[in-house]
């Protein structure tokens, strides 16, 4: 993930990605995923390029990007910690755990620590309901979390 790319590069990379994927059936979501994988977020300047190449309006692409919670319009911290907030995790003390993580990091959901180390995001079910409470750190899953376990996770991302 390269967070320091110029506008021009974003344009060229976007065009590469779109050109490579536009022949898919219904290519918009795969393209946006690829763009987010490339830049860490979906830069605004990609949208008109995608729109033009896919024969869509800018408005449509904007509508799609803002509909899906996965697509971010700005970069995240170096780590992304997703805490499950759904019922199965609630039944195992997920809410208290979330409060603890928030206070350990000093941020609320959808925020990034000032040092840019970690972004905290809620997630509604990771399919780990039999290992609740669960979390995902940078794509790696963690289950049966307790106060100690989250302390370790926080220490890991803070390192």
């Amino acid at each position: 993930m390269n967070l320091h790319v110029s506008s021009r590069d974003i344009g060229e990379r976007t065009l590469d990605i779109v050109s490579g994927m536009k022949s898919l059936e219904g290519p918009l979501l795969p393209i946006l995923h690829e763009i987010q994988a490339e830049f860490g977020y979906v830069p605004q300047e990609c949208l008109p390029i995608i729109a033009r190449e896919l024969n869509l309006s800018r408005a449509e692409v904007h509508g799609v990007v803002t509909f899906y919670h996965d697509y971010r319009d700005h970069p995240t911290g170096r780590h992304v910690l997703k805490l499950c907030r759904a019922e199965a995790c609630q039944s195992m003390g997920g809410d208290q755990l979330a409060e603890r993580v928030k206070s350990l990091l000093g941020i609320d959901f959808h925020q990034t620590t000032l040092d840019g180390a970690v972004t905290l995001e809620p997630v509604y079910c990771l399919g780990l309901c039999s290992a609740a409470p669960a979390a995902m750190l940078d794509g790696e899953v963690h289950g049966r979390l307790d106060a100690d376990a989250v302390k370790d996770l926080v220490a890991e991302v803070r390192a």
Binding site: L24, E25, L29, P30, L32, H33, F67, Y68, H69, D70, Y71, Y124
Partner: peptide
């Protein structure tokens, strides 16, 4: 068969 990924929408 093609695998497609959702984008965070229940």
């Amino acid at each position: 068969i093609e695998i497609r990924t959702g984008a965070g929408a229940y």
